[in-house]
Design a protein around this nucleic acid. Structure first.
Length: 887
RNA sequence: GCCCGGAUGGUGGAAUGGUAGACACGCAGGACUUAAAAUCCUGUGGCCAUAACGGCUGUGCGGGUUCAAGUCCCGCUCCGGGUACCA
């Protein structure tokens, strides 16, 4: 029988859809549950590309396997459908983004269904659906009404916030101000990144290191705008600690840790000569206080005006002005060429009462620590550069842990910077009584900190790099904030039961040049009046795309609930997500934001787990072959021809080099899954995506490779659909052994997400079946079962051909029978001095001594034994024999 | 600069410190066919040798540990990802 994959696949897709085969079980009593989640896609106009099915197939195999293992499986799909492209399209064509979005979702859904993925489509969600974003707005209200109790390290309702007496006495305005200063969500004039091309603000995270917007590649600028911000840094410690217990790739954990950027050190107060002010700095190296030879404050520091002396005022003002005109990009661009100016004022070093000059320089950032530093040029490379440039003193206070050398001499003389450990020198002072000479870094830091604390000059301090999260965008196609700004300055949130706050219809989607969102044109929607006639204006910003994706995994649990965000019992049953697969590009942002929201919801008692995603796995990107000529110029794939494993440009005849690159329209190497499904079938596409290599590595698509798995499926179908190959009676022991080896390997590999080797195990079995020519019906059935998570359409068909009329999807997974795997003999490789010379088959139970005896007596051993004298013989049972000879 | 990951045949890739190259593509040969495709079978790291057995060599480079290293340790090179004056 021919393998008509198109007919088979359509037939079973229809069956699954009609029978709702993959409907999520309602019964919450089964203690075995498994929540398998894909990162939901942004449904772009281009449709699915072959990168999408990689993760989707992996989760599908896992889900199908878990169902066969008796688990209740939740495996949903949905759309992260707010976003710029639909809005850009609306600007160009006037088509409402909701129409574009719907069309794109329809295409994606159709394409995904063509792959035979076992989603429960009754659980589909769409972030742009008011029934969905109603709850996104609802969560925003929760964030707004939550403060973070640092002593309990926990978010709590603002109603539980104690107002200090002195604030209470100052009246309502101050009380409001106080509460607002504690809310997790706040509205403030913020210096933000502005992309003039997209006319949108970007979060710090969306600006690439070269100062370009990650979405469009244009340079961003600084701008002050009133924005919504979320106080994610308050959760820094919780977010950091939470990482430890998660089954995530170490690399991703590290990236999150780096992003949060915890560093421990001390805050130290410096008195300022001639002023009744103190300058507080943050340092991770309080032990180097004796080496502090100057101070630096950021240009934006609040004390610059006070500190600067009259004779230096003009120079400092000019410098500050120049710095403010520079974008952050220019500041970092010039990282190596430091600038700065002396304020004319001196600070007093608390450890030795020495006067040290205070400088203003933009290599010190306002947003980190206190915006001021003590500079220790001998032991900090940045300070060293600055000191060298401006001729400031460099005092070495740490004799480096190095052997005597020129380098050591240079360091001690202050000619070179040393940032590693060493023994302190020049680090004592009689007047203050502090002395750390001779100690090493760890002891030095501890001693100085306890001294600073005792003298009330400083304290231990932890700082984080992570900043407040800029949470608004000047766009139409996003969730509207449920916020009204009243004419008297009050800000209120609309009532929970008024949700959702829908988007108004618009004629034009172009944002204003001033930076206001297109919503500011929706006059009717925009202006509101309360009962007492007070006028207000709705918030015109919308939420960023992260908002909807921050909590979508929770809505899948109960997507059509219109009374609650989800049913509590269901949430308790299904959470946390047991397996979450998606691209590593979301390693920091989505996953960190999402964890933050989840922790807030947990603190408020809305969800039952502290972390949302127990196990995370990143699929590697799928690239494509591309071609370039000698000079490195890329050549479009459609003009390439292959001859004798070499590649040539058809038009010019010159040889080109095959390289691996991202799929792109210009290279003409984009692979469309629809084409692959049409040519080879969905099962082949699925199998190839998994067979290409390990799930987590970057790998190039190769059409030839699809042929390999397609052959395998064709061979499988032809063999098992042919009744002549299926016999009664007892199974051949070799077949049984091969079959059970395959079950064992496939099972273990699915658990470890190593699908490529699982598939090769099945290929090995099939090759054995072909060699033997005949198998029993039991074998057909068992093999079909282990194949079914990978190639579900083909498996259903074979299962059906065996006379079964129910789906194979819930058949119990085959048990491995270890008896069939037992071996009587093992073929020992015998090596001499580590080099394999011959093999010998011996009983697995044979003792080491006996093995040694037989091997040494073997005819083939003689030749090698003559080459030296026997010194040792290593016998590792059922593994290897190694004979060690001395010459 | 710093952090993380990687480098294995012509290609994608296998390999709990124990037979390197499973499986697949490609290629070569054979069977079937008038022929081709499809299918089925055999071979296939490189070098040398051959009637045959065989030998040497080989996992980016240089060292080391070990009876034994693709795998562990030290020092590099190149490639990819993240991050960037974070005190």
């Amino acid at each position: 029988m021919d393998y008509n994959f198109t007919g088979i696949e359509k037939k079973w897709q229809k069956y699954w859809e009609e029978k709702k085969t993959f409907k999520t079980p309602e019964d919450l009593k089964n203690p075995k549950k498994c929540y398998v989640l894909d990162m939901f896609p942004y449904p772009s106009g281009a449709g699915l590309h072959v990168g999408h099915p990689e993760g989707y197939t992996a989760t599908d195999i896992y889900s199908r396997y878990k169902r066969m293992k008796g688990y209740n499986v939740l495996h949903p799909m949905g759309w992260d459908a707010f976003g710029l492209p639909a809005e850009q399209y609306a600007i160009q064509t006037g088509t409402h983004p909701s129409i574009t979005t719907k069309n794109n979702c329809d295409t994606f859904r159709r394409q995904i269904k063509d792959l035979g993925l076992s989603y429960d489509w009754d659980k589909e969600i769409n972030t742009t659906d008011p029934k969905y974003f109603r709850w996104t707005q609802w969560i925003f209200i929760r964030l707004y009404n939550t403060w973070f109790d640092e002593s309990l390290q926990k978010g709590r309702p603002v109603s539980e916030l104690k107002i200090p007496e002195e604030i209470r006495n100052q009246g309502n305005k101050e009380i409001t101000k106080f509460i607002d200063s504690k809310r997790l969500a706040y509205y403030d004039n913020a210096q933000v990144w502005w992309c003039p091309n997209c006319r949108i603000v970007c979060a710090n995270e969306e600006v690439l290191f070269d100062g370009s917007h990650e979405k469009c590649g244009n340079r961003v600028e600084r701008k002050y705008l009133k924005q919504w911000m979320l106080r994610i840094p308050l959760y820094a410690e919780r977010l950091l600690k939470g990482i430890e217990g998660l089954d995530w790739p170490e690399g991703i954990k590290d990236m999150q840790r780096n992003w949060i950027g915890r560093s421990t050190g001390a805050e130290v107060d410096f008195a300022i000569d001639g002023l009744n002010e103190k300058l507080t700095v943050f340092t991770t190296r309080p032990d180097t206080l004796f080496g502090a030879t100057y101070m630096v404050i950021a240009p934006e520091h609040s004390l610059t005006g006070i500190i600067t002396t009259d004779e230096k005022r003009k120079a400092v003002d000019d410098y500050i002005k120049a710095a403010s005109l520079k974008s952050d990009l220019d500041r970092t661009d010039l990282a190596k060429d430091k600038t700065g100016v002396f304020t004319g004022r001196y600070a007093i070093n608390p450890v030795n009462h020495k006067q040290i000059p205070i400088w203003v320089a933009d290599y010190v950032l306002t947003g980190y620590g206190t915006g001021a530093i003590m500079a220790v040029p001998a032991h900090d490379t940045r300070d060293f550069e600055f000191a060298e440039k401006f001729g400031l003193p460099i005092i070495c206070i740490q004799d480096p842990d190095l052997p005597d050398s020129d380098q050591k001499k240079r360091i001690v003389a202050g000619k070179e910077c040393w940032t590693e450990d060493g023994k302190y020198i020049n680090s004592s002072d009689k007047s203050t009584g502090i002395d750390i000479n001779g100690l090493n870094k760890e002891a030095g830091i501890a001693k100085i900190i306890s001294w600073l604390v005792a003298e009330r000059l400083g304290k231990e301090k932890v700082n984080y790099k992570i900043r407040d999260w800029l949470f608004s965008r000047q766009r139409y196609w996003g969730e509207p904030f449920p916020v009204i700004h009243w004419e008297d300055g009050e800000v209120t949130l609309i009532d929970e039961n008024q949700l959702p706050l829908q988007l108004p219809e618009l004629e034009k989607y172009l944002p204003g040049e001033s930076g206001e969102s297109p919503l500011s044109n929706a006059t009717e929607w925009l202006i509101v009046t309360d009962k007492s006639g007070r006028r207000g204006r709705r918030e015109t910003n919308t939420m960023p795309q992260w908002a909807g994706s921050c909590w979508y995994y929770l809505r899948y649990i109960d997507p059509s609930n219109d009374k609650m965000i989800f049913d509590t019992a269901k949430e308790k049953y299904w959470m946390p997500v047991d397996l979450y697969i998606g691209g590593a590009e979301h390693a920091v942002l989505h996953l960190l934001y999402s964890r933050f929201w989840h922790k807030v919801l947990f603190d408020l008692g809305i969800v039952s787990t502290d972390e949302p995603y127990q196990k995370l796995f990143n699929q590697g990107m799928i690239l494509a072959f591309a071609y370039e000529n000698e000079s490195g110029t890329k050549v479009a794939t459609d003009v390439i021809e292959e001859r004798d494993a070499k590649f040539f440009n058809k038009e010019t005849g010159t040889e080109v080099r095959q390289i691996v690159a991202k799929m792109s329209k210009s290279l003409k190497n984009v692979v469309n899954p629809d084409d692959v499904v049409a040519k080879y079938g969905a099962d082949s596409l699925r199998l190839y995506e998994m067979f290409m290599g390990p799930l987590d590595v970057i790998k190039p698509w190769d059409d030839k490779g699809v042929k390999g798995v397609s052959n395998f499926l064709g061979r499988t179908f032809r063999f098992f659909s042919n009744q002549e190959n299926i016999v009664d009676g007892n199974e051949d022991p070799e077949i049984l052994k091969g079959l059970h080896q395959a079950i064992k390997k496939v099972e273990g590999d699915i658990e470890n997400l190593r699908f490529n080797t699982a598939i090769s195990a099945m290929m090995i079995f099939l090759n054995l079946a072909y060699k033997k020519g005949k198998v029993t019906k039991d074998t057909v059935v068992t093999f079909t079962k282990i194949l079914s998570p990978f190639a579900p359409h083909l498996a259903e068909e074979l299962w059906n051909l065996q006379g079964n009329h129910k789906s194979i999807a819930y058949e119990p997974w085959p048990e491995v029978n270890e008896d069939y795997l037992k071996e009587d003999l093992f073929e020992y490789p015998v090596s001499f001095n580590g080099k394999l010379r011959f093999k010998i088959e011996l009983p697995v139970t044979m003792s080491k001594e006996e093995i040694a005896k037989i091997v040494l007596a073997d005819e083939r051993a003689k030749k090698w034994l003559e080459t030296g004298t026997l010194s040792n013989i290593i016998v590792v049972p059922n593994r290897i024999v190694n004979i060690v000879l001395k010459s």
